[in-house]
Simulated scan of single mutants.
Amino acid sequence: MSWTLFVDESGQDQRHSPYEVLAGVAIEDKKVWPLICQISDAQKQFFGMRLFEAYGAEAKATKLLKKKVYQHAAQMEPFNNEDRRRLTKEILENGEDVSRERLTALAQAKLAYCEFVLDLARRHGAKVFATMVPQDSPRPPNGEDMRKDYVFFLERYYHFLNQMPNDPAGFLVFDELDKTACHVLLGQISRYFQKTQNGRTRSRLIVPEPFFVHSDLTSLVQLADLVAYIISWGVRMSRMPATTRPELDPLAALVKRMRYHHTTEGGHAVWGIKEIRDLR
Results as ranks from 00 to 15, higher is better:
K148F: 14
F160W: 12
F153D: 07
E155M: 11
D149G: 00
T131V: 11
D145H: 10
Y158G: 02
P138L: 14
H159A: 01
P168I: 09
E155R: 13
R139L: 04
M146F: 13
Y158E: 10
Y150D: 10
K127F: 09
R122I: 03
E155Q: 13
F129P: 02
R122W: 10
L118M: 14
C114R: 00
P140M: 14
R156P: 08
Q163F: 10
L118D: 00
H159G: 00
A126P: 02
K127P: 01
A126F: 03
S137A: 15
E155K: 14
M164Q: 15
P134L: 12
Y150F: 12
D119E: 14
M132E: 06
G125K: 05
L111D: 04
P140G: 11
Q135D: 12
V151E: 06
L111Y: 04
R139A: 06
A121L: 10
L120T: 01
L118C: 05
A126V: 07
P134S: 10
P138H: 13
E115R: 11
F153G: 04
R156E: 06
L161I: 06
R122H: 12
P134Q: 08
R156W: 06
M146I: 15
Y158H: 14
S137Q: 08
D149I: 01
D167V: 08
C114F: 01
L154E: 05
A130F: 04
A121E: 01
F129R: 03
P140K: 15
E155S: 11
Q163H: 15
R123I: 02
F116W: 14
S137G: 02
L111T: 05
D167F: 13
L120S: 00
Y157C: 01
Y113V: 06
F152G: 05
G125V: 06
V117C: 06
V117H: 03
M132T: 09
N142I: 11
N162V: 01
D145T: 11
K148S: 09
P168T: 12
P168F: 09
H159F: 15
